[in-house]
Design a protein around this nucleic acid. Structure first.
Lengths: 212, 212
DNA sequence: GCCTGTGAAGGATTTCACAGCC
DNA sequence: GGCTGTGAAATCCTTCACAGGC
């Protein structure tokens, strides 16, 4: 039914939602695609087109009601509910993720973390208990987990992804510097600051010394 | 001269480079666009087209010499040299970034970090000295810094970006959850795990309970 | 008068398909 | 025979521009 919605569109919706949440917090009641576009460096036409995939949320002559549009977007994205997350890998990066305060308030609850290192197994990171990696599969069998976060070394990442996928997890946030393979029905996103840096240097490198 | 190269292409090159580095480390001498594409979930035609923006690096009938292509890509991207980086914001996230071992080996040297909190000013994070934010501008005047990393709270991020841009920095890696504005000649990349999570939930949310 | 929603146009990116070379 | 490099075709995405409602 719903004609295929481009992934680029889906990726922009959370940005819109975040801006709307800020506007709501600032007490703004209404915003036009023009004004929202200026806030986000996006053309107004793009915002309107993106939203039109999902319905008609604005009022001609007025714009969008901030609260209404925000709750529509939250519903569309599925961020109007609580999501259960597990974290695999409790090295420095994994610890930072577990103790990072940004997921909880957005509805992503990290239930448990897993690692093979006896130094961390049994500890708690903030409120996140750390279990042994061997217990990952049984944990996933006994608890509903929606999303997996992978923060293990590159060499182990594909194997961890495979275990998560095998246990039925359909969304993975991967911090390991590899291009992990997943089946079509699994969504994966990569967080890779080094790749981001490496694409920026292209633009700032001084023009070639000369023709060679 | 160089006809405009699409940004999507630039963003893929570091991925290719990383895979080639792994292949090189594994002792592979030659790879075809077909085989590289399978490794990376990219079509062979796309790899060939991407590379064709920059030259002719392959041999018909054989494929690409791994070492040669890798060093070409490193040169194209500008990751064949050392880049000087400063970090602004030494909260939990900033500390994790400073102590993260992934940048150094890729040629990104974090020279200094800045924060206003007296608890951290004067300390060292790994090998990174922490200075007071007030000293940021003078530091940037006295030292060549190519890239800024922003890890301050959302409320302060735009102001920090403005200071970096004002000091002549032309590439910024932003970890703050805002859409910072920069002039056209400045490149910015955003690292935002929450946005990544929020775009995945769209795909895993259960089908609507029913028609309403 | 202002601003949305949307077909249609335009532009960008990807894929095809094949000539040419190893 | 295998594989690159590349115009041309196909697809995808963005922007235009305007009818229609507030």
């Amino acid at each position: 039914m719903t004609l295929e919605i481009p992934e680029v569109v889906i990726n922009r919706l959370p940005v819109y939602a975040r801006a709307l949440a800020e506007l709501a917090a600032a007490g703004e009641a209404v915003i036009s695609s023009q004004a929202l576009g200026e806030l986000l460096d996006v053309t107004p036409a793009q915002i309107r087109k993106d939203l039109s995939y999902f319905g008609r949320f604005g009022k001609q002559g007025r714009g969008y009601n901030v609260q209404v549009l925000l709750s529509k977007l939250r519903e569309i994205l599925g961020i109007d509910r609580q999501w259960r997350v597990c974290l695999v890998g409790v090295g420095r990066l994994g610890q930072a993720i577990a103790e990072y305060g940004g997921f909880g308030p957005q509805g992503f609850e990290i239930l448990a973390a897993f690692d093979a290192n006896p130094e961390v197994v049994g500890r708690e990171l903030g409120t996140v208990p750390v279990f042994h990696s061997d217990d990952l599969d049984s944990f996933l069998r006994q608890n509903r987990v929606d999303i997996g976060i992978v923060a293990v070394p590159a060499t182990e990442a594909q194997a961890v992804v495979n275990r998560l996928v095998g246990a039925g997890i359909r969304a993975i946030l991967n911090y390991a510097p590899i291009n992990a393979h997943v089946p079509n029905d699994v969504t994966i996103r990569h967080i890779d600051p080094v790749l981001a840096m490496q694409s920026m240097t292209f633009y700032i490198k001084r023009p070639e010394p000369s023709a060679k």
